[in-house]
């Protein structure tokens, strides 16, 4: 390669400045450029542009579909949450109802029991009062009899009315 330097190189030195070849180079360059330009504008660029646009469209569609799915998922989740909340509310309502019922039952039972107890208490009270009254009566009689006996033993005679009054006064003065 190095030794077969042609005549052109000897005469000019620098092949780039060999003006005799310029016409040839420029002619073929223009041919090549026109060929590339036609290849690009007729086939390649529209095709690539279309592919890029199509991909953009596909990606946009996919994104839209994904958005749609996401929306549906969130709607489903919202529905689920709502159902859950409803169920919770229902459960709370049922619990409250049951509680109220139990409360009412309890209150009624308590009131009944209270009434029963107070009735019994009143009965007992009354009987105690009766017993007490009869006891007092008995005490007064015993006291009167005892007093009459004592008076008789001591040799006096007491009339019933005075004895009654005296015993009554004594018993009134003392707390029962």
């Amino acid at each position: 390669m190095a030794t077969e330097a042609g005549g052109a190189a000897q005469s000019v030195g620098m092949p780039q400045l060999d003006f005799t070849t310029y016409g040839n180079q420029i002619f073929w360059l223009v041919v090549a450029l026109v060929a590339i330009y036609l290849l690009l504008t007729r086939i390649a660029l529209p095709r690539i542009g279309a592919v890029l646009a199509e991909r953009k469209g596909t990606v946009a569609n996919d994104l839209a579909a994904a958005e749609d799915l996401k929306e549906r998922a969130s709607a489903a989740e919202a529905a689920y949450q709502k159902a859950l909340a409803d169920a919770r509310a229902e459960a709370a309502r049922i619990i409250a109802e049951a509680k109220a019922e139990i409360q009412a039952d309890l209150a009624r039972a308590l009131a009944e029991a209270d009434a029963d107890i107070s009735a019994r208490a009143a009965e007992s009270e009354r009987r105690i009062a009766e017993i007490r009254a009869s006891a007092m009566q008995s005490v007064a009689e015993v006291a009167r009899d005892t007093a009459a006996e004592l008076v008789a033993v001591l040799g006096g005679s007491a009339d019933a009315a005075a004895l009654e009054a005296a015993v009554g006064a004594r018993m009134k003065g003392q707390p029962s």
């Binding site: 390669m1 190095a2 077969e4 330097a5 042609g6 052109a8 190189a9 030195g13 620098m14 092949p15 780039q16 060999d18 070849t21 040839n24 180079q25």
Partner: peptide, 9 residues
């Protein structure tokens, strides 16, 4: 060395 020979048309 003929570095410019490669450019000969």
């Amino acid at each position: 060395i003929h570095p410019m020979d490669q450019f000969i048309v």
